[in-house]
Design a protein around this nucleic acid. Structure first.
Lengths: 267, 267
DNA sequence: CGGATACTTGAAAGACTTCAACGATCGTGG
DNA sequence: CCACGATCGTTGAAGTCTTTCAAGTATCCG
């Protein structure tokens, strides 16, 4: 790990076996499940910074899991206005919603160079059929994404610019920290001011002004793509951050038993 | 069905077997699947208008499907500000995100008198295990909810008050119409101005003013809990409504085959 | 060095909120 | 039946948050 103020770990934005790591948050995988996941992990994909991974309205037959790097998902209005709906980091799913329609409903773009794990949508179905526990785990993840999005809605609807940014920084810190990617309190944060504006529903100019207020009150420090949180509690208070919505927990024991039974029955 | 300007159907807000109807949008259920769903449908629950169905932070061991009526999901900030994240109508899931934590992350309230179908969270796991197709269908639904929420984010971040309301009305019409609950273009819309404000990230006063502009330009007509859309195309244009994000489609044939195979293997 | 992009600042305008007041409606109790 | 209070709906004016426009400095890169 990293010390506060240190610069980078050996692999600052990457994480091995992101899918396994993510699912392991909810249930401890057995060997057959791990094998299945490994089997899917075959196709790895790389995109350069700013590359389009999926386009709104275009056919989309794959779902991705980020192995390293950051991505953004966005929608556009007809006159060019853009809203970034989320920043995705290692372990996150991409294009998860396209499994409904085989058509992407968002523009997904690589914010940094990224490495992705590629899964055919149909393959997802097979996996769900063979290993119901994994299907349920995916349901779990979808629910978590949903919860995070709901909080974003809350920010956009009812938080002021200062609160929105403070909240985003705390949330980002918590998410990166869970992956071991927040070295101390100084983390890689490769988001431009324009992307920040499009995510927060503000203009870049107002982002600059608000960021300045945040740094001048000693809550954070920014230099280039590095974000340092100087006063986490202060930032939480400023952003009215309540961690409840983001905390993961294990699948209830009873569900887990039922799922295990079903898996065994198939062998 | 209803004629334009007519008042009510025999069951203006209800729908039979809401879960089946919802899932049938994605796949045609076989008899064993229908039986399983019927088995779950046993516990039916009623709540009166304004009753709390779930509370943010409280333990939550059930997921619900709305049989009739409207509900809202909301988050609160520490100082009382409220953001409604969505309005739920018949067929919609409630507390879906609580399957992650067994703790509700939102306040769910009955907007009208409602009838719900109650499912234990653990039961969901069992069903997923026994009928992978249903698990995947639920994944589908979760993805659709996600897509709708992303659009809400877009509204709050990048649409003006007038556009937001126009968009909401079109979206609501489309959703109700898919259930056969939008009689012509005049539908039951039991949302108070205050709820509208909390959903759109605005104040009630501004809702009144904006609603007035919408009615004066001849796009809609409101009287009490009835909403009539006078100019659907105009409203779509005003709200920059792009239906892509909300359209359902069937599960791809290949996935379906894989799932069926798995189901059979278990018998 | 030139030119692009990132970042900053100021002033005016716009969208929306806040405060305050008022009439209309509606259910309720006397 | 009428009076009453409560909520709903409306309007006006001032204030706040954020945007727009416009200009300017700093930094980086070729």
């Amino acid at each position: 790990m990293d010390t506060v103020g240190g610069h980078a770990t050996s692999s600052p934005m990457g994480v091995d076996r992101p899918l396994e790591r993510k699912l392991a948050q909810y249930l401890d995988l057995d060997t057959s499940e791990r094998a299945l996941l490994d089997g899917m992990s075959g196709s790895e994909l790389r995109f350069a910074r700013a590359a389009a991974i999926a386009s709104d309205g275009a056919e989309q037959n794959h779902v991705y899991v980020i192995k390293s790097g950051w991505c953004s998902c966005a929608r556009h209005l007809s006159d060019g206005r853009r809203q970034i709906t989320r920043f995705a980091i290692p372990g996150d799913f991409l294009c998860f919603d396209s499994i409904v329609t085989s058509v992407s409903t968002q523009d997904v773009v690589a914010i940094t160079d990224v490495t992705l794990l590629q899964l055919r949508i149909e393959k997802l179905g097979e996996v769900a059929a063979k290993q119901p526990r994994l299907a349920v785990a995916m349901l779990w993840m979808a629910a978590q994404d949903d919860s995070a999005l709901a909080e974003r809605v809350t920010s956009l609807g009812r938080r002021f610019a200062l609160e929105r940014l403070a909240h985003l920084f705390v949330e980002t810190y918590v998410r990166l920290d869970a992956l071991g990617l927040a070295g101390g309190r100084r983390m890689h944060f490769p988001i431009t001011k324009e992307q920040l504006a499009d995510a927060m529903g503000l203009t870049t100019i107002h982002i600059y002004r608000t960021l300045r207020r945040l740094t001048e009150s000693g809550l954070i420090r920014l230099d280039g793509p590095w974000l340092e949180i100087l006063d986490l509690d202060g930032l939480k208070e400023q952003g009215k951050f309540d961690p409840l919505y983001i905390e993961a927990s294990e699948i209830p024991a009873a569900t887990n038993r039922a799922l295990r039974g079903a898996s065994l029955a198939m062998e």
